[in-house]
């Protein structure tokens, strides 16, 4: 069992330091960019060399690093971390025709740069790993963290999901049909009935260990799947709920619905088996679509199970429970990679 003790998030919304989800920032040009803080705790010479993914990843980690005396490592999930730096280096290669190049952006271009910078910044020689399996990069990081605390009782880790919008990944995914052609405002996000979503980014970081006492939340179960078949996903979801004996009457279904009409059947077929008591809520209008958006959903779950009153704009269907005791997250990335997470208070 994985217990979450602290959670920190840099997102397009006001989620860092002061949390305010009543006032929503809408997308601009179909992109939801993060609101970056001042990064007081990162040395200036380090900050200057960091790409955006590394910057928001390290930035979101800093408040947690201040709160702990011993940490046993960093477990990061990122699909595109380093993409922006890769492109800077690629441009150099082309511009100087493979001539004399400066290596800075090459070194920062590797996906493990965030975990590496965090270990450098803290002098931490513990476990250090970066999972990059696109839409399941964060989920694999969660599985890894759950195994680490099981294997090494009493240890604590920073677990994170981080991705940024770079011009290149936006362009490639846009050409591949994953972002909408028409411009979307915040209000019509879920009702466009067209293919594609809007781009998002963010860094959500968690302090995790195996201590139940005073935890914000626990990740009770996680399951990952690869499929393009809504029926198979529905059956797997049903099996997951049964196996975990989820009490649907005091549960929130946090749906990864993203305005893409091609993905909607997966979400609606999962909703069909949830009964009438459950609250159905959505979050992608807050963070946009990106491969590790499930990390934002997990951060949101930690808030909803504690102090945050569910904002009305998140609710798709009201349920009967006043105070939820568990949250079921289902996320679908590009019609191919799926995950279920059960979060309990």
């Amino acid at each position: 069992m994985l217990y979450i003790h602290e959670a920190s998030c840099i997102s397009p919304q006001q989620t860092f330091s002061t949390i305010d989800l009543e006032h929503v920032t809408d997308p601009v040009d179909n992109k939801l960019h993060v609101a970056e803080p001042a990064y007081g705790g990162i040395p200036k010479n380090m900050l200057r060399r960091m790409g955006k993914a590394v910057r928001i990843g390290v930035g979101a980690s800093l408040p947690l690093l201040d709160k702990i005396s011993s940490l046993n490592g960093f477990i990061i999930g990122t699909a595109n971390g380093g993409m922006e730096e890769s492109i800077l280096f690629l441009k150099q290669i082309i511009a100087y025709d493979e001539g004399v190049l400066t290596p800075g952006s090459f070194v920062q271009s590797t996906a493990n740069a965030t975990a590496a910078q965090l270990s450098l910044l803290t002098g931490n020689r513990g476990y250090n790993i970066t999972h990059v399996h696109r839409g399941l990069a964060f989920e694999n990081a969660v599985i890894d963290a759950a195994m680490m605390v099981n294997e090494n009782k009493g240890t604590s880790y920073l677990l994170g999901g981080i991705d940024d919008i770079s011009n290149y990944n936006y362009k490639l995914d846009y050409m591949d049909g994953w972002y909408k052609e028409e411009e979307i405002d915040g209000q019509s996000f879920y009702s466009t009935n067209s293919a594609g979503s809007i781009a998002g980014e963010g860094a959500a970081i968690f302090l995790v260990n195996d201590h139940a006492q005073n935890a914000l939340a626990k990740v009770k179960a996680i399951k990952t799947l690869h499929s393009a078949d809504p029926d198979l996903i529905k059956r797997a979801f049903e099996g997951f709920i049964k196996e975990q004996q989820v009490d649907l009457s005091s549960c929130i279904f946090l749906s990864g619905e993203n305005g893409d009409s091609r993905l909607l059947p997966f979400y609606t077929s999962c909703e069909e088996i949830l009964g009438t008591d459950i609250t159905i809520a959505r979050f992608k209008h807050l963070c946009g679509e990106y491969p590790t958006a499930s990390a934002f959903a997990l951060w949101l779950s930690c808030q909803l199970l504690n102090r945050l009153q569910m904002p009305e704009h998140m609710i798709k269907k009201h349920g009967s429970a006043k105070q939820p005791s568990s949250i079921l997250i289902y996320n679908n990335h590009k019609n191919a990679q799926h995950s279920f997470m059960l979060i309990e208070s």
Partner: peptide, 21 residues
């Protein structure tokens, strides 16, 4: 790379890609 292998072999278990340089 490994999403292609997942489809190629019709894999159904935990699939992951790791990059630590």
């Amino acid at each position: 790379v490994f999403l292609y292998l997942q489809e190629y072999y019709h894999l159904n278990g935990i699939i992951d890609t790791i990059n630590t340089a």
